[in-house]
Simulated scan of single mutants.
Amino acid sequence: MIQPDAPSSADVPTNAETTTAAWRAAGERGDAEAAAACLAEDAVAISPLTAAFRFTGRDQVREMLIAATAVFSDLRYHTEVGDEHTRALFLTGRAGREQFEEAQLLRFDAHGRITELTLFGRPLPALTRVMGDIGPLLLRRQGRPGLARVVQAATAPLALLTRVGERRLVPLADPNRVRR
Rank of each mutant, 00 (worst) to 15 (best):
77 Y>W: 10
60 Q>Y: 01
88 A>Y: 14
157 P>G: 11
23 W>H: 11
121 G>Y: 02
116 E>T: 12
171 P>R: 07
8 S>F: 06
55 F>S: 07
131 M>A: 15
131 M>I: 10
34 A>M: 02
83 D>W: 01
116 E>S: 07
30 G>P: 05
115 T>I: 11
129 R>T: 15
124 L>E: 13
117 L>K: 07
10 A>E: 15
124 L>H: 04
75 L>M: 10
30 G>A: 06
2 I>W: 00
36 A>H: 04
74 D>Q: 14
15 N>V: 02
45 A>L: 09
164 V>I: 15
126 A>S: 05
3 Q>C: 06
126 A>R: 12
71 V>C: 12
139 L>F: 05
150 V>L: 15
61 V>T: 05
41 E>Y: 01
27 G>P: 00
132 G>R: 08
86 T>P: 00
121 G>S: 08
102 E>D: 13
33 E>H: 10
42 D>S: 03
142 Q>M: 05
18 T>F: 11
152 Q>D: 13
16 A>L: 06
95 A>W: 05
10 A>G: 02
3 Q>S: 13
89 L>E: 07
8 S>V: 02
93 G>C: 02
119 L>G: 06
80 E>V: 11
29 R>V: 03
39 L>C: 01
81 V>C: 00
43 A>D: 04
51 A>K: 11
14 T>C: 07
11 D>Y: 03
148 A>Y: 03
162 T>W: 04
21 A>M: 00
58 R>T: 02
65 L>G: 09
166 E>N: 13
145 P>N: 10
122 R>G: 10
100 F>T: 07
86 T>Q: 09
46 I>Q: 08
167 R>N: 10
101 E>W: 13
109 D>V: 02
31 D>F: 04
53 F>R: 03
138 L>D: 04
174 D>L: 01
94 R>L: 09
41 E>F: 00
91 L>R: 09
9 S>M: 09
144 R>Y: 11
49 L>Q: 06
72 F>A: 06
176 N>Y: 09
83 D>A: 06
167 R>Q: 15
136 P>M: 03
37 A>L: 00
99 Q>P: 06
34 A>E: 09
85 H>G: 09
104 Q>E: 13
117 L>E: 02
52 A>V: 01
18 T>E: 07
93 G>A: 05
85 H>V: 01
174 D>R: 05
113 R>G: 09
94 R>Y: 03
160 L>F: 12
126 A>Y: 07
17 E>W: 09
133 D>M: 11
145 P>Q: 11
142 Q>T: 01
148 A>L: 02
59 D>E: 14
117 L>M: 12
28 E>R: 04
173 A>W: 09
143 G>W: 08
128 T>C: 05
122 R>N: 12
120 F>H: 12
27 G>H: 11
179 R>I: 12
64 M>V: 00
2 I>K: 15
9 S>W: 14
177 R>D: 00
37 A>W: 00
9 S>P: 11
162 T>Y: 05
13 P>Y: 04
155 T>E: 08
94 R>K: 13
8 S>N: 02
178 V>N: 01
